[in-house]
Every structure is written in C-alpha cells, then in structure tokens.
C-alpha cells in the first residue's frame, strides 16, 4: 500500500505550548500534516512498533487519535526530548531500568526517520551543544568572545580573576535541571564572582566551572537563525539593572523586547558559524557593548524564540515550517 508522505513530526513534550502550536499552524497552512509526539508520554501513552525481517522494516507510532507509519514522515522538527513520565505505581526497583530501556528504544526508533529532513539532525545538535567547541568556532569565524577559563584548578581561577581586573562571572556547562531536594529546585545562572568567593576556590577540585570576563552591556540580544533567515530581539541593559548578569533568571523585570538590526558583517559571520555546525536552526545570545561591539556568548540548538514571535511579531514559526518542507533544507 502506498502511503502519502505528507506528515511533519514534531518531537516535543507534553508541557510544550505556544511555539509548538505556532509551528503546527504554519505547517497546516502550507498543506502538510503536523503530528505531535510528546516524548515524555512514551512508553505509557505513546506506542511504538519497529518491525524487521529479511526483506523490509516498518515502524509505526500510535498516540492519542493518530497512528502513522514513519514512511509517511517527510520532515522532523526536533524541538525537545524529555525523559519518560512513568506511573508512581511502577515498582521503584524497576523504574531506572524502564527509563533507560525506553530512552534506548526511542533513540533507536529515530533511525527509521533517516530519510526525513530534520531540523536539526540529532548528531549535529549534540555536536553543537559542546560549549567549548562553540567558543572555538565562534572565534574562528571572527566573532568576539569573552576571555574564558574552564578549570578545576583554584590557582588558575584566582589568576584569571586578576587578569580580568576582578570583573568575572561564573557559570556551568550544564544545567541543574533536576530537583536537589524534594520540594524545591536550585538553579544556577551566570553569577558575579567576588574576590572573597575565591577563598573557597579549592572546592573546584570536586567540580570544574566556567569563568568569563564580565562584558559591559548596552543591549542583550537573542538571535534566532532559521535556514539563512535571521531574527533578532534586544533587551536594553539599563532597563533590567538586576539582570545585568543573566536576563534569563526568573523574577527579573527585563522590560520589553525590541527590534534590532545586526550589521551585515555580523550576519555573514553568523552564517559561517551555523555552516560550521551544519545547523538549520539556532538561538544565539550576544552582548552589544556600549562601544558597539558584538560579543558571542553561546548557541542553543533548540533554544527559545516564542517571546520574539509574540512580542515583536517576528515570523519565526513560519520560517521553521518553510525550512521543514523546503527541498533545500537538510
């Protein structure tokens, strides 16, 4: 039986909203069928079947009111993958094994979608998630980057503090996404390091940290790249005094997002940067300094952009939809 190849699979999670709906709407308008796959609902609600024999293989996904073969999928939007959400009734001694096996199954299942266009390919996303690699490649394509030290050596951290004249921030390469206590969660944002903090720097032996020179800010930029198109939102640093270190921190009043035009040379470097990673999508953070220099901070290959679409009416969802069904993409 011939199956029409008119499905775009949206890989996300059950808590996702707004951006996922905007992309689904944009895809529908372009005449394809968006299908949402909430990864945290596998294996309890999403059912996967992968069947192999000597002549062929076929894979199906059943979730909610749909059942599709992966042969129907022409493109995949790789937005988020969350861990399985398993019933509290499951015997606790088997929980870890069930999660591990489910993740391995899901990871293997993606192979059945190898003929589809991905935004973006999982291997490329993982490659781009290396933040030290990001800094190296950013520098190689001509972006300014903050002087940076990553170390577990106390003496080096103290030396670096003086090299940057005591203007230093710290952060981690990864996020603390899981609760460290039953009823509360801890988060670590980019934080200012004071000299007295470094009296305890010997404790770096238990876990390294990233240290960077603190860059003076005129504006903080969220730059969204979609298959050659560039969308920019800016926050004025004088509006969000409390956020002069990290605007992403909850409770910080950031003021409104504003339009911002990147210079042609920065756009050229941005395209070279994305080309080096082979990515069609990325959410990048830059600082515009008071003297007008653009300083690269990081890229998140699956970063947020909904606030720019909503507040600035930037057509990012439409651009993603177009990239998904474009012959040139992928």
């Amino acid at each position: 039986m011939h199956l029409s190849r008119d499905v775009v699979l949206l890989i996300t999670h059950s808590g996702d909203f707004f951006t996922i709906d905007r992309v689904a709407q944009a895809l529908s308008k372009k005449g394809v069928k968006p299908i949402r796959l909430d990864t945290d609902k596998f294996p309890q609600q999403v059912q996967l079947v992968a069947h192999f024999d000597e002549s062929r293989s076929y894979h199906t996904i059943e979730y909610g009111n749909y059942s599709i073969s992966t042969e129907q999928v022409q493109a995949v939007w790789m937005r988020r993958i969350w861990e399985p959400e398993l019933s509290s009734q499951l015997a606790s001694q088997f929980r870890e094994a069930c999660i591990r096996e489910s993740k391995a199954t899901l990871n293997g299942f993606w192979d059945s979608l190898k003929e589809a266009r991905w935004i973006d390919d999982l291997a490329r996303i993982n490659y781009a998630n290396n933040k030290l690699r990001q800094l190296r490649i950013a520098s190689e394509v001509g972006f300014m980057i903050p002087r940076t030290l990553v170390t577990n050596k106390a003496e080096s951290a103290r030396e670096f503090f003086h090299q940057v004249n005591g203007k230093m921030v710290s952060k981690l390469l990864t996020t603390l996404s899981h609760s460290m206590e039953a009823n509360s969660s801890f988060f670590l944002y980019t934080s200012i390091v004071k000299e007295e903090d470094l009296q305890d720097a010997e404790s770096l032996r238990y876990c390294p940290m990233v240290f960077q020179e603190q860059i003076l800010k005129q504006r903080e930029l969220r730059v969204v790249y979609v298959n050659g198109n560039v969308f920019v939102g800016a926050l004025n640093a004088d509006v969000y005094t409390a956020a002069k270190v990290d605007w992403r921190k909850p409770g910080v009043e950031v003021g409104g997002w504003q339009h911002h035009q990147l210079p042609d040379e920065i756009v050229r470097r941005l395209k070279a940067f994305m080309g080096r990673f082979g990515l069609l999508f990325g959410a990048l953070d830059f600082i515009l300094t008071p003297s007008g220099e653009y300083v690269f901070l990081e890229i998140n290959p699956v970063g947020e952009w909904g606030m720019l679409e909503k507040d600035l009416d930037l057509p990012i969802a439409s651009a993603i939809a177009l990239a998904l069904i474009s012959e040139k993409a992928g």
């Binding site: 305890d200 720097a201 876990c207």
Partner: peptide, 8 residues
C-alpha cells in the same frame, strides 16, 4: 560542597 554551590 562544590564551588558552584555558593552561586545556587
């Protein structure tokens, strides 16, 4: 505690 704990 690791060094980063002071910034949590």
């Amino acid at each position: 505690l690791p060094f980063f704990a002071r910034f949590l």
